[in-house]
């Protein structure tokens, strides 16, 4: 079996696994009809959509599927930073004291998916919105900016999130 065909099978299997896992989480049932239905439809959907979920050039396993424990740590980091920045936006709403600024910086992440997750995480935390993501370049609108320096702004906006994502993906 050539490498391309093997990689296609791996992508179908990974998509199938994720879809089936989601089905079990959502149905929370091990009844035969539920299990057979889940297996059948996860198989059909995986065969149709594996190329959309995992593109052919994403050849490294960890550029698509995150490592489990670091991914859980990342989720906790994301929730903690969401609440921390929510409180600072809450203070800004009450006082009306905002210092909005558009900042540009680069990401050290290499995998496409990891970069998208970083941009999504930046937008998810109130106080920062990713305006543009072009390769490793990020343009972010920052509500309570404290610096104009590109590297320092990057470190404040994405520092802990990027480190957590890097541990989970590439």
């Amino acid at each position: 079996m050539d490498t391309r065909r093997r990689w296609r099978l791996v992508r179908v299997a990974q998509t199938f696994g994720v879809l089936l896992g989601l089905w079990f989480l959502f149905s929370w049932s091990l009844e035969p009809t539920s299990v057979v239905g889940g297996l059948l439809f996860a198989g059909i959907l995986a065969t149709i959509s594996y190329d959309v979920f995992i593109e052919e050039h994403e050849a490294a396993r960890h550029s698509v599927l995150p490592r489990v424990v670091p991914a859980a740590t990342f989720l906790l980091t994301l929730i903690a930073s969401m609440y921390a920045s929510s409180f600072s936006v809450l203070v800004a709403v009450c006082t009306g004291d905002v210092q909005p600024r558009v900042v540009h910086f680069r990401s050290k992440l290499r995998a496409d998916l990891a970069r998208v997750v970083l941009a999504e995480s930046i937008t998810f935390t109130p106080g920062t919105i990713a305006l543009e993501l072009d390769e490793d370049q990020l343009i972010v609108h920052w509500l309570t900016a404290t610096t104009r320096h590109s590297a320092r702004a990057g470190d404040e906006v994405k520092g802990s999130l990027e480190r957590a994502i890097k541990r989970a993906w590439l």
């Binding site: 969401m82 709403v93 009306g96 905002v98 909005p100």
Partner: peptide, 21 residues
């Protein structure tokens, strides 16, 4: 915040409070 903030971008930050948190 959505009423109080001055432009579209800052209002998006405020709406993130109600829409996200």
């Amino acid at each position: 915040g959505t009423i109080r903030f001055p432009d579209a971008y800052t209002r998006l930050h405020a709406s993130a409070l109600s829409g996200t948190t």
